[in-house]
Nucleic acid binder design. Structure first.
Lengths: 357, 357
DNA sequence: CTTAATTTTGTTAACGGTAACAAAGCCGGA
DNA sequence: TCCGGCTTTGTTACCGTTAACAAAATTAAG
C-alpha cells in the first residue's frame, strides 16, 4: 500500500480517508463513480438504487468516514428533526423526570432534542425562543404557561407546534399538558383543614421566582382563608428551593412566629425534608408537635421512616404523553389541545388528625 | 388601518406580517429597498451599514417577525455555534451541577448547547456522536473516558474539539477534565482502614453499568486488600443508584452476611442515605454500631443531623473549567490537554475511630 | 473642483445537500 | 425487432444565508 516514505503515506491517506470527517457527498459519489443523488438516496435509505450500487456506496461512505450534513440536509429539504425543550432548572427532579418520560418517544420518532435551562427567567426564555426559532425546529416545549408577551407573540406567529408543560391552562399557545397548581394547593389546604390544622405556616422561595409554586401557595391560602386563617401572614421565603432553604426558613419561622404553627407547608419535598430535619433538631416531634407537608412526591419518601405528606404529580407520564401529543401534531394528526393531569394527595406520616381546641 | 372588512384585515396582515415566522431575508430586503447583504450585515451586527439604514432594517425585520435561519447561516458560513453534551443521566445531581457550571461560560461565548442523556449505554452514545457530527458542532462533550471503539475513531477523525468530563485519563480523545475515581475509592478505603474498619461491605449497582463507580469500587477493594480484607466478597448490587436501591441493598446485606459489617460503603450519597435509613429502622446505630460512607457530597448532607462521610467532588468548578477549556480550544487558543481535579474526603458523623479488636 | 481614500452598498458564487423531473437501461410481449 | 412500462440513474434548480469581491457613494485632501 504505502510505499514507505512519509510523503507517500500522507498522500495515500489523502486519497482514501482525507481529513475523514470532512468528506462530503461529492467525494463519495466520485469515488463510487455514481451521481451525487444516488449517494443521497442511499444515505437517506430511500428506494430506487440497485442493491449492488447501494452496498458499494455504503462501503465507500464508511471508508471515507462520510457523515451527511444535517445542516445542508434540513435546509434543502426544509424538514426538521429538532425539538427544543426549555426547563427552569435541572436541579429539581421534576424536570429530569419529565424529560425522561419524553426521551423514548422522541427517539423513536427520530427527533433530536435540545434541552436548555432558563433558571426561571422569562427574559432568558425569550432569548431561547428566538434562538430556537432560527433553527427551524419541528417543535418546541416550554415549561409553564407564563411567558413574556414577546415570547407568546413570537410563538403564535411562528406556526411551530408548541407544547406547554407542567402547568395548565385552557388557552395554551398551541398545546398544553400539566397539572393545576392552584387547585393542587387548594386541595392540600382543604385536606389540612379537614385534619384540623388551623395555624399553618408556609416556607417557599422569593415571590415571582416560580409562578407554579406561587399558584400552589395561592390555593393553600384560599383553603385556609375559608376557615378564617391567614397562612400568608406566617410565611418565610428562602433564597433557594433546596434542603437547606427549607431548613433555614423553618428555623426562621420557629424562632420568630408569635404563635407556634401546627403545620408547616413547603414549596416542595426538598424543602419539607430540610424543614423536618430542623424540627427534629429542636426535638419538635413530627407529626405529634407539628405537621410537615411538601409537594411532588420526591422519591426520597420511599426510604424515610416518616413519609412526608405531599401532593403526588405524574411527571414521567406527563412527559411521555406530552411528547406523544407533540409528535402526533408534528406528523399532522389532529391532537388534544390541552390535557389536565390529576394530582393526588399522599397522606403520609408527617401529618395527623388534630383535635379541635 | 384595516378598512373594516375581514377580508381587508387579512389582506393587510398578509402584506405586513405574512405568516410572520416564515419571513426571510429577501422579504426584509425588498420591504426596505436594500440588498439582501445589507440585511444580513445588520442582523449579524457587522460593520458597514449606515446608521439610518441599520435602524430602518431593524424596524422592518421586527415588524415582519423575521428571524435569520441559523441552518442556512451556518451552512453558508461554515461556522457553528453548537456544543453537544452527552451525560449518562439527569437524575444524578452530579451531572446537573456539571451542566450548571458550564452554562454561563457557553452562554457568554454565544454557544448553544444540546444536552442528551445516554442512560449509561455506550451504544446510545455512539449513535449520539454520529447524529451530532452531522450537525457540524463547534465542540462535543462526553461523560467519562470509556467509549466504544467506533465512537473514539469517529471523534478522532472528525477533528471536532472534544472534551471528556467527570472521569480522567492522560490520553484523552482530545481534552479531558475530571477526577480519578480509582484513587478516590482508594483514598476513602485508606481513610476507613486508618479509622480501624476491617469488615467492610459495599452496595452499588450492577457491574458494567457505571464504569466510574466500578473504578471507585476497585480502589476501595485495593485499600482493604492491603490489610488483608476482601470487600468484594461482601457486596450487593442494586438495580438503581437511588435512595431505594441503597435501602434494599443494605437490607440484603444485613440479612444475609455471615458476619455483620462494621462499615457500609455506597456507590453514592443517595444510596448511602437510603442505607442509613435502613440501619436506623433496624435500630442499628450509625456510627456506633455501623459506619456509613457515600460518594459525591450531595447537598442533602447540609441538613442531615448526621452528615454522611463522603468524598467531595468539585462538580460545578469542573463544569466551568471544562467549558472554558473547550471555548478556548474552539477559538483556536492553545489549551491544557488534561486536567485532574482533586477529591476531598469529608469525615462526617457516620464513621468513627474504631478500637482494634 | 479633482482625485484619492474611505465608507457604504450590491453582485456573484458558493455552502452541502434534496425535490422534481428527465433520461437511460431493462424487461416482456406483440 | 420494436414498443410501452417499470426501474435505475442523472440533471437542474433551488433551500436561505454568507464570503469575497466589485461598484457606487461619500468624504477628505490638495
Amino acid at each position: 500500500m504505502a510505499s514507505g516514505t512519509g510523503w507517500d503515506q500522507d498522500r495515500n491517506m489523502n486519497e482514501t480517508e482525507k481529513k475523514a470527517g470532512t468528506a462530503k457527498i461529492e467525494d463519495v459519489a466520485k469515488e463510487a463513480s455514481v451521481s451525487i443523488m444516488s449517494v443521497s438516496r442511499v444515505m437517506r435509505g430511500v428506494e430506487g438504487v440497485s442493491a449492488a450500487k447501494r452496498s458499494e456506496i455504503r462501503r465507500i461512505a464508511r471508508r471515507l468516514g462520510y457523515s451527511p450534513s444535517r445542516v445542508a440536509g434540513s435546509l434543502a429539504a426544509a424538514n426538521s428533526t429538532l425539538i427544543g425543550i426549555s426547563v427552569p432548572t435541572l436541579f429539581e427532579a421534576v424536570f429530569a423526570e419529565i424529560l425522561d418520560g419524553m426521551r423514548n418517544i422522541f427517539n423513536r420518532a427520530g427527533l433530536q432534542t435540545i434541552v436548555e435551562t432558563t433558571d426561571y427567567l422569562e427574559s432568558f426564555e425569550e432569548k431561547w425562543v428566538e434562538r430556537m426559532i432560527s433553527w427551524n425546529p419541528a417543535g418546541l416545549i416550554l415549561s409553564g404557561v407564563y411567558h413574556s408577551k414577546t415570547t407568546m407573540k413570537r410563538l403564535r406567529n411562528a406556526g411551530i407546534p408548541t407544547l406547554e408543560i407542567w402547568d395548565h391552562t385552557e388557552t395554551p399557545i398551541d398545546m398544553c399538558i400539566g397539572v393545576n397548581h392552584l387547585s393542587a394547593g387548594y386541595d392540600m389546604g382543604c385536606h389540612l383543614v379537614a385534619l384540623g390544622y388551623r395555624n399553618p405556616a408556609y416556607v417557599g422561595v422569593s415571590l415571582n421566582r416560580d409562578p407554579r409554586a406561587e399558584d400552589r401557595f395561592e390555593g393553600l391560602t384560599k383553603a385556609f382563608a375559608e376557615v378564617g386563617t391567614n397562612i400568608r401572614a406566617n410565611s418565610r421565603l428562602a433564597t433557594a428551593a433546596s434542603f437547606e432553604g427549607g431548613m433555614v426558613g423553618t428555623a426562621d419561622i420557629l424562632n420568630n412566629a408569635d404563635e407556634q404553627p401546627d403545620v408547616l407547608c413547603f414549596l416542595n419535598d426538598h424543602m419539607a425534608f430540610g424543614g423536618m430535619m430542623e424540627c427534629e433538631r429542636r426535638t419538635l416531634r413530627v407529626p405529634k408537635n407539628i405537621g410537615v407537608v411538601g409537594f411532588n412526591g420526591l422519591n426520597i419518601n420511599e426510604v424515610l421512616p416518616k413519609q412526608i405528606t405531599t401532593s403526588v404529580t405524574p411527571r414521567t407520564l406527563m412527559g411521555a404523553t406530552g411528547a406523544r401529543m407533540l409528535v402526533s401534531k408534528i406528523s399532522g394528526a389532529k391532537t388534544e389541545q390541552s390535557i389536565l393531569m390529576p394530582v393526588e394527595i399522599f397522606a403520609g406520616d408527617t401529618t395527623r388528625k388534630i383535635e379541635p381546641t
